[in-house]
């Protein structure tokens, strides 16, 4: 009987949080101007998502995040395979990659503003830049850490260097590539939302949060924050599902 309830355990945390929230509003532990009730917040969220501004901004952020991740992946995956396949080349570039990977992408905004102006291109390219380095790093390591025995096994069966690369190395690197993609899309979302807040934006979830805060419309602001949270969680889940379908051997 206890076991049957196990799948519902995660719901408990959510219910607990909402209960605490209600209590905080009811007892006025937090200033009611700063913390609207859950009912008001979910109402604002429903209204916004069902044909309101929030829905539009949500889609704009989705579009920017997906686009920057796709651009990042298109550049970083082939490059990562190339670098990973020749370990000495990767070693010579490792410091550069690690350095820019460790540089907060937000510090690059001014540079990209100079390069691409205040439009959409800047937001997408900074996010793509950040995500690409994360993906590149993971793909390269995935290729470099391909099991030596597996490469030897292919070689001993008569596979050419190219066949070893396409038949073994690429597939060996897939689990690590997906780690990179998941981290990359999360980072891209962070950068896109920050960019929407501060780089002359008129739409997007970041803009929605910022605008609601400026107008002191707290239910709208919380609604936008939750929408951003749901988006981040959803993207992660999506990549996990894709991984489980295509990389069925991962971790086995």
């Amino acid at each position: 009987m206890k076991r049957a309830l196990d799948p519902f355990l995660p719901v408990l945390g959510v219910l607990g949080l909402i209960a605490l929230w209600y209590i905080a509003v009811w007892k006025q532990i937090v200033d009611p101007v700063l913390l609207p009730s859950p009912t008001d917040t979910f109402h604002a969220m429903y209204k916004g998502m069902a044909g309101g501004r929030l829905g539009f901004d949500f889609l704009m952020t989705v579009e920017r995040t997906i686009l920057s991740t796709v651009i990042a992946a298109a550049i970083a995956i082939p490059l990562g395979i190339f670098l990973g396949a020749s370990e000495r080349l990767y070693r010579s570039l490792e410091f550069v990659i690690d350095f820019f990977r460790s540089t907060p992408a937000s510090a690059m905004f001014p540079l990209f503003l100079v390069l691409f102006g205040v439009g959409n291109t800047t937001k997408i390219s900074v996010a793509a830049f950040g995500a690409a380095l994360v993906i590149l790093f993971n793909v390269s390591y995935g290729v470099m850490n391909a099991r030596k025995t597996r490469l030897l096994a292919a070689k001993v069966m008569g596979a050419s260097r190219l066949r070893v690369l396409t038949d073994v190395m690429l597939l060996e690197s897939l689990p690590q590539t997906f780690v990179g993609l998941r981290n990359g899309v999360s980072l891209a979302l962070v950068i896109v939302v920050v960019a929407e807040m501060f780089i002359g934006s008129t739409d997007g979830l970041g803009q929605r949060v910022f605008e609601a805060q400026q107008l002191f419309n707290m239910p709208d602001m919380y609604a936008a924050i939750f929408a951003a949270g749901a988006l981040g969680y959803g993207l992660n889940l999506m990549f996990q599902l894709i991984e489980r379908t295509f990389v069925h051997w991962s971790g086995k």
Binding site: T149, R150, A153, M157, D167, L171, L174, V247, W249, K252
Partner: peptide, 20 residues
């Protein structure tokens, strides 16, 4: 580590024939 986990067993066995 010598078998290819992304291939079914039958495809693992066939792999050297594919190379041929």
């Amino acid at each position: 580590e010598a078998l290819f986990p992304w291939l079914r067993s039958v495809d693992n066995i066939e792999y050297p024939l594919k190379l041929l």
